[in-house]
């Protein structure tokens, strides 16, 4: 049981957004979908949830098409920045509508979350602040009976306390009732410890697709005097570099050569997910600007 995205291509007005994209979303896993502004993350999530049709390619769930299919669409929920709910409807009525249309809703958990986040269920959706709209949508996302939950910028407008609360609730609900979450966000540091698998979308393609520990295990910062660092990293996959004073840092993505001796002057550390993301998605101009 998995969602398969196969050969997806998306163009708007002649501009390519996604090109020949292939990925698989397995059950009961937390994914991170990372990419810079305009990379196509929201477009990809909109295609998966059938909100837009791809120019080419297919999306299937257990081999069944996601296109115009109540059976498969009823197994996913996409919480997005776009407001899809009627502005005049009250929050409590939207919970009822969700229960009616999805055929279920965890009322007890929703009540707990409403209390914890301080959401006014008598308020009209259109009157909620940006933060509380996100909270409302998050509560629905965590309470609908689906197998796949897609969260596009889930903490938009949330203060630090509410963000912390959301991450805690996400871990708790995932432990109690495992299902797949796909989180698309720019706050990489905040989700780095949550996600098991990461996709990095850049330049219309998935450039990183793997388990987070495996990816971080082969991401290195090699720092030290320039000549020593350059000698050690020769022929390795250097994806970026920094210079500060007399110290040079080379960022390497890929296996190191274990038989190559490490000079005493050179230090080898692992990169964190955010730094790796920044390095991998920097444009050439930006990368050059960093080298000083």
């Amino acid at each position: 049981m998995s969602i398969q995205v196969q050969g997806v291509q998306q163009s708007f007005h002649g501009h390519t957004i996604l090109e020949d994209l292939n990925l698989t979303l397995e059950p009961n896993k937390i994914y991170g979908l990372l990419g810079r502004n305009g990379a196509g993350k929201s477009t990809l999530l909109n295609i998966i949830s059938n909100r837009i049709r791809p120019t080419h390619g297919t999306v299937t769930l257990d081999g069944e098409s996601m296109h115009d299919n109540d059976h498969t669409l009823g197994k996913i929920y996409l919480m997005s920045e776009v407001n899809m709910y009627p502005e005049r409807s009250r929050v409590k009525n939207l919970f009822k509508t969700t229960r009616l249309l999805y055929g279920g809703f965890n009322d007890a958990y929703a009540a707990k979350l409403v209390h914890a986040f301080g959401l006014d269920i008598n308020a009209r959706f259109g009157k909620l602040s940006t933060g509380y709209r996100s909270i409302f949508k998050l509560i629905i996302a965590l309470c609908v009976p689906v197998d796949y939950v897609f969260l596009d910028e889930p903490v938009l407008g949330l203060d630090a306390n509410h963000r912390e609360l959301f991450y805690q609730e996400l871990i708790e609900t995932y432990s109690d009732q495992p299902r797949t979450f796909v989180i698309s966000t720019h706050l990489i540091e905040e989700i780095a410890n949550l996600i098991e698998h990461v996709f990095v979308l850049n330049d219309h393609h998935i450039i990183v697709n793997g388990e987070v520990p495996d990816i971080l295990a082969k991401s290195y910062t090699i720092s030290g005097p320039q000549t020593d660092v350059e000698a050690y990293t020769a022929n390795l996959n250097i994806v970026g570099e920094d210079h500060l004073g007399g110290i040079t840092a080379h960022y390497v993505y890929g296996a190191l050569e274990n038989d190559r001796p490490i000079p005493d002057t050179v230090k080898v550390d692992h990169l964190d997910l955010q730094k790796l993301f920044v390095i991998l998605t920097n444009t050439k101009e930006e990368a050059t600007a960093y080298v000083n």
């Binding site: 949830s49 059938n50 909100r51 115009d68 299919n69 109540d70 669409l73 009823g74 197994k75 996913i76 929920y77 996409l78 776009v82 899809m84 709910y85 009627p86 509508t97 969700t98 249309l101 999805y102 689906v146």
Partner: peptide, 16 residues
């Protein structure tokens, strides 16, 4: 459009 948004948000197809 408003109903379409609500229904696609709630996992319902265009056909339905």
């Amino acid at each position: 459009y408003d109903n379409f948004k609500l229904f696609i948000q709630n996992g319902l197809s265009r056909k339905t």
